[in-house]
Design a protein around this nucleic acid. Structure first.
Lengths: 178, 178
DNA sequence: TGATATCGTCTGTAGCACAGATGATTTCGT
DNA sequence: ACGAAATCATCTGTGCTACAGACGATATCA
């Protein structure tokens, strides 16, 4: 419905500078705005889960990838280990996942989803998908698919995908201090 | 960066992408991952500014749009008013912006960038642009442009497009349930 | 066996957002 | 013109969250 025209129009009182600079609002603003909206919608869709979208991501990874350790799980999502501890605590409390002793390494706890956890995840997945589709309502359907693919590939490019250490390194590297 | 895979054609019929490379990362993961990377890179590019990317966004809006009040500025970026106060404090302290009494409404402070502020912003803009381009290095150049456009249009769609009041309304509206 | 590294947890600290109250000023109603 | 209500920016206090560091438990290596 919105016109496919290059979306930047001068604001109210004489601000053509933005248009002159090229992209009207910039990648920064778009990313932030979109993520903010996404956050509120997904939070609403996952309100039955602890920790909102954060926990949703964790549960999702646990079910689909089941990393061997909590640390690996945390690194996968760019979360601190200590955070992962109480994040999983709340999930155990709700009976969505379990901590199992890894017989091969008794230091490690293997995080596995319960049947209930998987069932809940399936339900939330549906609602999240709906929320995401709603989020992209500004785009025509075929552009949504395209956008998803581009986004995923861009994300894959920066996380180096097959090198999990890359994620860890970048996540734990201090911002060069000053 | 390896192969600039075809984006436009693959997307058009169905969604084979998910099956192709690791399933279910989904829009959620992509968005989060991309934003995390973006955040670290932009933070690095804006380390000379207070408040990191947050302040960068503010300075940017101040220079280009110069909203009449702090509240309007805050609403524009989805930031709380009280946060905006000390955020601007730090910018005033660095001599990047000034608070000027609005003669028409003496309650309001008009936030204007100093010459120094504009100069610094210009420098940072260049570095941020480079960081953003680097962020999209996983996409072939023509797809980057496309991605930017789609992203911006999607973001515009959720922010009520040309109705700035919509942003305010949504920002202050409670999650409205479900 | 002892030294060192890893895993998960716990503790303390710092930063940040948000609600509410406050003082200053404008606008509206009568 | 006068007072009530709204608005702007600020300040204060509270709660949540992340992160650094220390700690036991276990594994690995010399």
């Amino acid at each position: 419905m919105p016109t496919p025209t290059p979306a930047h129009q001068a604001a109210q009182d004489g601000a053509p500078a933005a248009a002159a600079a090229g992209p009207s609002l910039g990648l920064s603003w778009s990313l932030v705005a979109l993520l903010r909206e996404w956050s509120t919608r997904v939070d609403a869709a996952t309100e039955e889960l602890p920790q909102g979208m954060r926990g949703y991501q964790v549960l999702r990874v646990v079910v689909h990838d089941s990393p061997p350790t909590q640390a690996a799980l945390a690194a996968r999502l760019g979360i601190d280990r200590t955070v992962m501890t109480y994040l999983i605590d709340s999930y155990v409390e709700c009976g969505l996942v379990e901590r199992q002793q890894d017989p091969a390494d008794r230091r490690a706890r293997r995080i596995v989803a319960t049947a209930h956890g998987r069932k809940v995840l399936a339900g939330v997945d549906v609602r999240v998908a709906a929320a995401e589709e709603d989020l992209l309502s500004g785009l025509p359907p075929e552009d949504r698919v395209l956008f998803r693919e581009l986004l995923e590939r861009a994300a894959r490019g920066v996380t180096q995908d097959d090198d999990p250490c890359g994620v860890v390194a970048r996540a734990t590297t201090p911002p060069d201090g000053r």
